[in-house]
């Protein structure tokens, strides 16, 4: 079970959305972390065979992703997906089951299980157009699991979920990751911080970092500092170094920033979190927006 990306590139008119991405994914949960516009969706579309790369190729166990055999083991939750407004949740799952070539009888059972799993059983017969955003999202997750996929691609699966649903979702994913490749994209650090075996950090169309949480956190480990300063010093510091957090306290401004060495006398080194790493990488992009 191995999914290989070989110098995959996709360019939109004047925008390089995915830039020579080479990756090898094996069984486990992969978290694709990146700011909006980093190229996550584009990359996922290409690995689901709905968008052709300009160059490079994606192979699953030596097979091309354009083939039916690959789609047979694929589960995909697109970032934005539609539905037929007059289909009920059950209809929708049964239809996608037909599209996935699952025999009717078996599909019914699976669909009922998945509706239960995603807490949609009470509304199974309701039309999808009456669903809230979170319900649609859960239905989307359910359909991706219909064919018990070997490769599960989830594009921002937690969008629209409330905190309780998020926790449930995380638990579900870590269970699923034991026997398949799961790739989920997010721009929310806490989604992947604890469940991803490997975190892929994407920026400007390229994967700039990959590794387990402890591996990638090393980049800024020992470089995250917190200090309290008066407002003038705080301003100077925030110009000089990437600031992760800023808060007005009683004795001045509390700053959390990244710096090779101690930025100020009063600064203390603190344990880096993935969030720090994310902000460190994407602070410019965020400000640009």
């Amino acid at each position: 079970m191995e999914l290989i990306f070989d110098r995959v590139t996709k360019q939109y008119k004047n925008k390089l959305a995915v830039d020579r991405v080479s990756l090898s994914l094996k069984q486990g949960v992969y978290g694709l972390l990146g700011a909006n516009g980093a190229g996550k969706t584009t990359l996922m579309r290409m690995m689901c065979g709905v968008l052709k790369p300009d160059s490079g190729e994606i192979l699953y166990d030596g097979r091309k992703v354009e083939e039916e055999a690959y789609r047979d083991i694929l589960g995909y939750l697109p970032q934005e997906f539609g539905y037929y407004p007059d289909f009920s949740a059950m209809d929708f799952l049964m239809y996608l089951a037909s599209l996935k070539g699952i025999p009717r009888k078996q599909a019914r059972g699976t669909a009922l299980e998945l509706l239960e799993l995603t807490d949609l059983s009470p509304v199974a017969k309701k039309k999808i157009k009456t669903f809230s955003g979170g319900m649609k999202q859960r239905l989307g997750i359910a359909q991706a699991l219909l064919n018990d996929p070997k490769v599960l691609v989830l594009d921002e699966p937690t969008a629209g979920l409330d905190p309780k649903e998020r926790v449930r979702f995380r638990n579900l994913i870590s269970r699923l990751g034991t026997e398949r490749i799961v790739l989920l994209s997010t721009h929310i650090v806490s989604d992947v911080e604890h469940i991803a075996d490997v975190i892929l950090v994407m920026k400007g169309g390229a994967i700039i970092h990959q590794g387990s949480f402890s591996e990638i956190i090393q980049v800024i480990d020992g470089k995250v500092w917190e200090c309290t300063a008066d407002s003038k010093t705080a301003e100077e510091l925030s110009k000089a170094y990437p600031v992760l957090n800023i808060r007005e306290g009683q004795n001045g401004t509390l700053l959390r920033l990244v710096c090779q060495e101690k930025p100020a006398e009063t600064a203390v080194s603190v344990v880096a979190s993935l969030e720090d790493l994310y902000l460190y990488y994407f602070s410019e992009t965020e400000q640009g927006k």
């Binding site: 579309r45 689901c48 709905v50 694929l74 997906f81 599209l99």
Partner: peptide
């Protein structure tokens, strides 16, 4: 629905 439909087996 195109993304869902086109990424399914059939």
């Amino acid at each position: 629905m195109d993304a869902l439909v086109l990424s399914s087996r059939y």
